[in-house]
């Protein structure tokens, strides 16, 4: 019975996260537009796009594997969201945190890209392997600084549970890992630029190189599912960062604000940078950010 209740609460949490993700996406589009000197779309444009994509009449499928892309992508996003505590002490945000969930969450991060590689390939368009290859190699690169940062935190706290890591920073903002582990935070936040896939690391769907990369053959309902997955994936990642470095959240308002601030970090970088080539981006992540990560681990160990 308690489990059923928890499932109900978590579903509500997922819905809120999707809505907030779409809204944030709209705000980001508006922000980019303002920087470029445009008016930009209304902030609720993400919802309209979602609805429109669901109302496309034809959906052309390329076999059963084709469904894997959107499905795995959404599953990855929902998975991350469900296994980290979004809001401590509020039922829809508690979710299913357990000892060792951090490892599971990091595994879920690969999910989306793998799904796109599998599903997109069923479409048979040559952009798919190029885009998927780019995505996976860049992901391998930015996981290095991120995992080093996580190892540093875990070595210090002695737990693989996001919940415990959050509770360890409970005493005010001076206890936040952002301040107590500055090197780990720096490595992780640089890795986040790659995770979010905004410029300069938007190599996967680079519009004028390989337009939309692995998603080339997707349309209609598939795109809508992908959009939902992306919205919740973005929010879940931000919540993970909030839990790891910004001391989690105890109310929904606090969570909204912290998530938004973390999101804006990658948007601010994206607005003024061109795109790296994928080899350059890998070289970037394996250079300074990885070194900072190593320093963080060394500091935590000794």
């Amino acid at each position: 019975m308690e489990l059923l209740l928890q499932i109900l609460w978590s579903s509500i949490g997922v819905l809120i996260a999707v809505a907030y993700g779409l809204l944030t996406g709209g705000i980001v589009r508006k922000l980019f537009a303002r920087i470029q000197g445009r008016v930009g779309p209304p902030v609720y444009q993400g919802f309209i796009d979602l609805g429109k994509n669901f109302f496309v009449r034809d959906n052309i499928s390329h076999g059963p594997m084709f469904y894997f892309g959107p499905a795995l992508r959404t599953a990855g996003g929902v998975g991350i969201f469900l296994f980290i505590p979004a809001i401590v002490g509020w039922a829809p945000g508690e979710n299913f945190s357990f000892a060792g969930d951090l490892l599971l969450v990091m595994y879920f991060m690969f999910f989306g890209s793998l799904g796109m590689a599998l599903g997109g390939s069923a479409g048979g368009h040559p952009h798919t392997p190029i885009g998927a290859g780019r995505g996976l190699s860049q992901m391998t690169a930015f996981e290095v600084p991120f995992i080093l940062a996580v190892i540093a935190l875990v070595a210090d706290t002695g737990s693989f549970s996001v919940h415990d890591l959050t509770l360890a920073q409970a005493g005010g903002f001076l206890e936040w890992n952002l301040l107590t582990h500055p090197f780990a935070a720096a490595a992780a936040f640089i890795a986040m630029l790659g995770m979010n896939g905004y410029a300069p690391f938007n190599v996967v769907g680079a519009p004028n190189e390989i337009p939309v990369g692995p998603m080339t053959e997707y349309q209609g309902g598939f795109i809508a599912t992908l959009g939902t997955g992306r919205a919740i994936f973005a929010i879940a990642k931000m919540i993970l960062f909030m839990d790891l470095f910004l001391g989690g959240a105890t109310s929904i308002l606090e969570a909204f604000i912290k998530v938004f601030v973390i999101y804006m970090w990658s948007v601010a970088v994206a607005a003024v940078f061109p795109r790296y080539r994928v080899d350059q981006s890998m070289r970037f992540f394996l250079g300074w950010p990885a070194l900072i990560g190593v320093v963080a681990v060394l500091l935590a160990l000794f």
Binding site: Q36, P274, R275
Partner: peptide, 16 residues
């Protein structure tokens, strides 16, 4: 040339 490398702002400015 700037837009070709994924820089969205410059084409907006220069087109104007």
């Amino acid at each position: 040339g700037a837009g070709a490398t994924g820089l969205g702002a410059v084409p907006n400015w220069t087109y104007t």
